[in-house]
Amino acid sequence: MPTANNPSPVSRVLAAANSVILGKSNQTRLALCCLLARGHLLIEDLPGVGKTTLAHTLARLLGLQFARIQFTSDMLPADILGVSIFDRERSSFRFLPGPVFSQVLLADEINRATPRTQSALLEAMEEGQVTTEGETRPLPEPFFVIATQNPSNQIGTFPLPESQLDRFLLRLDLGYPDRDAERALLESGGSREQLPALAACLGAGEFAPLQRLAAAVYASPALLDYLQLLIEASRREQRFVHGLSPRAALALLAAARAWAFTDGREMVLPEDVQAVLPAVARHRLRLVSGSHADAEDIAALMRSVTLP
């Protein structure tokens, strides 16, 4: 067990992140869990509440190679994946890798791009490799996408379809900072200033072992029973168009493991499942009324399931 004098790498990352992003400890922890569970993260909220800052901060703190794409509506798949150009000297084509070939890819405002460009990225996320002009090139390991998205009712957006939302392990809202946090922000002059000065908490190659540890957190039969009851309840609940898929169940378990790991525990508790449930389920459950489930729907779902 890590002690107070010798905190675990995870808590060091969290402490550092919380010093940059003020008053959002739950969200930073969820974001870290997502990366520990080898998932991709979608951050959705109004412009200006710190989405990009969160993504940027995490990449820096984890010591990962980082690239950023600002999506626009005229962007083409090649702008992300890379292009082959003709090299006169060697009389052959040479591949210039696009920004997707990096460990942490910050896809800013992904829903401003056209569906064609979006799906190029999402295919890369799903398969961990890129195929252009008949040649398949693996992406670096680890490979994360932290996508940010404006709420889809904003002008000039192409909302991500259901099937592609499912490829993001977690989805977060940031929300406005509370009064104290906002005051601190105003006094410090904005956290983006500090970003270049931020030192990495982990060395190169230190993150992958953490991922392996997180995936090894013990999930007992009783916990799996509970998780299955939750999934079944989501399928039975009439408010939702359809319930959570088996992929969502896997995502829930992986995220709950990572959450337990960030808490320094060796086993998953129902509390861990409940903590990550809103982030796992909200973008996967659509209400009969057409909108995505809100926090209250997920809380009702959670309360309807008795612990076995």
Binding site: L269, P270, Q274, S304, T306
Partner: peptide, 9 residues
């Protein structure tokens, strides 16, 4: 304890 409430919570 609520029926859905975990031990630590």
């Amino acid at each position: 304890r609520a029926a859905w409430e975990g031990p630590l919570a």
